[in-house]
Write a protein that binds this DNA or RNA. Structure first.
Lengths: 234, 234
DNA sequence: CGCAAAATATGACTTAGATCATAGGAACGA
DNA sequence: TCGTTCCTATGATCTAAGTCATATTTTGCG
């Protein structure tokens, strides 16, 4: 795949005219990271827009006491970290870490903004993208504030399967590899409770599999559980 | 205050040229709502951008079981509900309710988008605004996921006082009137716990006052409590 | 003013989820 | 293939916060 081909899959890229595409291509740098490294860390100066080309990345925030919270799992095509890169002299409000070996494209803030200023339609697309992300984040906050741990985990699995579910003979397999710890960090519980709840879900034939791969076996019931407060106890 | 004057205080308005200002002025409608009404409700079609002119508004989401969660308190100058109004045919993902009698300005999506398309600098300002809101929402989610109830409440009071704190002889008074129920809905706890924690804060001379007005008497210690996990127990 | 309605206050009890501890299983590199 | 290192599993407590119940205080209104 050539550089230009991969850029074509970037959201917004389609809206540019040929000249701006060429200009942007010149500004894009492809970088690879391995699992265990960081793409950037909380507090680093934010100098680039990042676009995920291949692999999966998690956005993480941590508290002074060392506890971590995973805000979102990014998949190819996703932009990050718009929320910070947007401000002059700002630092990243969270870290980005690969969930596997990944390759990302990065563009300097300056070049990206210049492109947006020349392409109002692209800017409107970014506005829509950010609107969507804001929505997701608020929905997430609502779930954290109001729902029980098992409901939050069910919601998470439903969201994940809708984004990265791969059909399989006995259900939908998640294309990302997530440990119970990862799941726990996404719904704000400890590993132990995440494990206990997942075990319950297994017993109830809602899911199967371990860290290597998670398979959703009964999406409908998971969805019910996510909203209905007392379905499928024990 | 004339219509144009109040528009001058809208974020982004400064960036427009005179002609676009005039055009937008023609599209703006001023509407008043009283406490107890709704500006829009979850599920309503989203047809306008809203700008708060005077008063205070809360953005609320609710779960099927009837529990509510307040996502943000808006103050004059704030835009809402960008996160939804941005999409074609979308409905509001949450409700907006006045905390007192308010007046808002509203512009049709179409007119606003047309204006942004003609004014790339204004579009970039909206991008920055949404980036900031996304940040806030994610920070919020982190706090909900990781912190104890008293820390969340302390964080909330700190955030509020920074936005709407009015200096007073014995501290900073919040310019918005919020009941314990309102506070509870913002940090994801029940009224009773919000009351108990506020009582503790009162005893510790961190705050004073009731529903009519909340006064922050020791901001420094509240900030400590918000991060440090074991300050100021009992 | 005086009364109804709303908001705060506090106690007693229950429970979801955290914490601590320990063990078994899967995965991967030497 | 063995061993080390992650990861999952599960039990035994402990505790923060929810729930229910019942005052007491504010506040606004007629």
């Amino acid at each position: 795949m050539t550089e230009t081909d991969s850029l074509r899959r970037i959201p917004l890229f389609d809206l540019l005219n040929e000249r701006d595409r060429q200009r942007l291509v010149g500004e894009v740098v492809e970088v690879c990271y391995r699992k265990g490294e960081y793409i950037f860390r909380e507090g680093d100066p934010a100098e680039y827009f990042h676009i995920l080309k291949a692999g999966a990345v998690k956005c993480v925030k941590s508290s002074p006491s060392g506890k971590e919270c995973t805000l979102k799992v990014l998949m190819p095509g996703d932009l990050f970290c718009c929320e910070a890169a947007v401000f002059d002299g700002a630092t990243h409000p969270g870290s980005a870490a690969p969930l596997c070996d990944v390759t990302i494209l990065r563009v300097s803030k300056k070049a990206y903004f210049a492109m947006l200023r020349r392409n109002p339609d692209a800017a409107l697309e970014v506005i829509k993208y950010l609107g969507k992300r804001l929505n997701e984040a608020q929905e997430n906050a609502k779930i954290l504030a109001l729902d029980r741990a098992d409901q939050r985990l069910a919601s998470l699995l439903v969201k994940l399967v809708e984004r990265v579910g791969i059909p399989e003979p006995n259900g939908l397999r998640l294309a990302v590899r997530l440990t119970r710890q990862d799941l726990a960090n996404m719904v704000g519980v400890t590993v132990e409770t995440a494990i206990r709840i997942m075990s319950r879900f297994k017993r109830a034939k809602l899911v199967s599999g371990g860290a290597k791969q998670i398979v959703i076996r009964d999406l409908a019931r998971l969805k019910e559980l996510a909203v209905d407060s007392l379905a499928a106890r024990r």
